[in-house]
Amino acid sequence: MNDALAIELRGLRKEFRRGALVTRAVDGLDLDVRRGEVFGLLGPNGAGKTTTVEICEGLQTPTAGEVLVLGRRYSVRAEALELRRRIGVSLQETRFFEKSTVREILELFRSFYPAGRSVAEAIAIVALEEKADTRSVHLSGGQLQRLAVATALVSTPELLFLDEPTTGLDPQSRRQLWEVVREFRAGGGTVLLTTHYMEEAEQLCDRVAIIDHGRRIALGTPRDLVASIEGAHVVEVVAAGLDRLGAARLAGLPAVTKVSGGDGAFALTVSLPHVAMPALLDLLQRERVELTGLKTRHTSLEDVFVNLTGRHLRDEGTT
């Protein structure tokens, strides 16, 4: 047991049985979440993120492996009770008592905890003051999600679990929630969140683990992960005639470290854009390829995922 860790997972495995079919949702996962950090679990849908988080929340029991949360185990009854007082949880897509108001729902959740914030304070944290007396059935998706976070913050949790807290939200609601998470962290809290938004992980997380098929395929700060790709820039080029040239010709250009894509749209990973760009344009002009789109950007966690798996995070197809 390590006091500096909020969560320790060792060899975590979770299998679901349906008749003869066994699905392995989590397949030998090791993970440490340090106290005071915002840790992100990143991965496509079905990667095992939610299962992992729900095991950490005590909602599911692992098939095998060790789970320590705040140095305690859910398998010990007294420790499980203690943990439920010390954690705050926002599940994916929870709907609450529909005919109760935001305030009434928070009063209910507040009553479960021996200590915590006032209901008014919890409402203020998620900026739902105007909706305090609105029944939950009339809340928008973003407001409902903020209510879910408020139910997690109405106690004073040391560890906050947020399962896809911003999925389906508009950009403004998303930024509002990020602010809530940052403030919670500033107060010394630890956060484990799952997301499939790269931008969210880059903006919010101190460290991320990229999960695919129930396994950890990368771990580090967003900056380190991005830097691990050779070449810090990506040039996206769209032109009908590109396939005629072939990926090999593009890969042969100076300062280009990797080429992916096809069907007239390619992404070049590039170490020095000011070297690669003129050479690329030169090639296109010589080969009389008509350009329909050209974009350069910094590499992101999305590229890290593509680089590791050959797939994009948010769709199932290969690129």
Partner: peptide, 13 residues
């Protein structure tokens, strides 16, 4: 079905 029971059992209730 609304996942409300799940949400309630992770509290000290």
């Amino acid at each position: 079905s609304k996942r409300l029971l799940r949400r309630l059992v992770v509290t000290p209730m």
